[in-house]
């Protein structure tokens, strides 16, 4: 599946340094850090509002976002993330046509079911924490917020605890 001319990934430390500078720019221009899960949740609110408008606007959590949940800066940031990722993948010739990444030991179906459940948990947990690895762990970590660092530690605690049970996904 690997393309012949696919370029190697960046030096992780330099990529990290660049990400740090992007985060710093976000602090200095926007006054808020990076975020991804809020944008996704607002798409959820939009869909929910499309299906059941009255129910959504009167619900306590989504209702506070008003009838135009997509008018929010993190929705635009999420669009930017997609476009940036796309540009980089095209330049580095890493763009694939709908492949499923997995080890040979599991079927595509198993892998996608695991992914869907994982997505559900992450979507729910991101709302409970008011952010994900970007908005809570990375951004809050750089601000040295107690809650963000506790969240970061617990993400890895949960991940390492569950890793053994889902390891077959990556076995070849």
């Amino acid at each position: 599946m690997k393309s012949e001319n696919q370029k190697p990934y960046s030096n992780p430390y330099l990529a990290g340094a660049m990400l740090g500078i992007v985060l710093l720019a976000s602090f200095l221009f926007l006054g808020a850090g990076l975020g991804a899960s809020s944008g996704i949740a607002r798409i959820g609110a939009f869909i929910s509002g499309f299906i059941a408008p009255n129910h959504t606007i009167s619900s306590e959590y989504f209702g506070a976002w008003g009838d135009q949940p997509l008018r929010y800066y993190l929705v635009y940031m999420l669009i930017g993330v997609f476009l940036g990722g796309l540009s980089s993948a095209v330049i580095a010739q890493r763009l694939k046509k709908l492949v499923i990444e997995k080890g040979n030991a599991v079927s595509s179906k198993t892998r996608l079911i695991f992914t869907l459940i994982g997505g559900l948990l992450v979507g729910f947990a991101s709302r409970l924490a008011g952010g994900c690895t970007s908005g809570q762990a990375l951004t809050g970590g750089a601000l040295l917020l107690s809650g963000s660092l506790i969240f970061l530690i617990c993400v890895f605690a949960g991940g390492y605890a569950a890793a053994y049970f889902v390891r077959r996904q990556w076995d070849d």
């Binding site: 992450v122 947990a125 949960g158 390492y160």
Partner: peptide, 10 residues
């Protein structure tokens, strides 16, 4: 939230 997120992440 962190614990649930970690499980979902892995």
């Amino acid at each position: 939230a962190g614990l649930i997120f970690g499980v979902g992440f892995v």
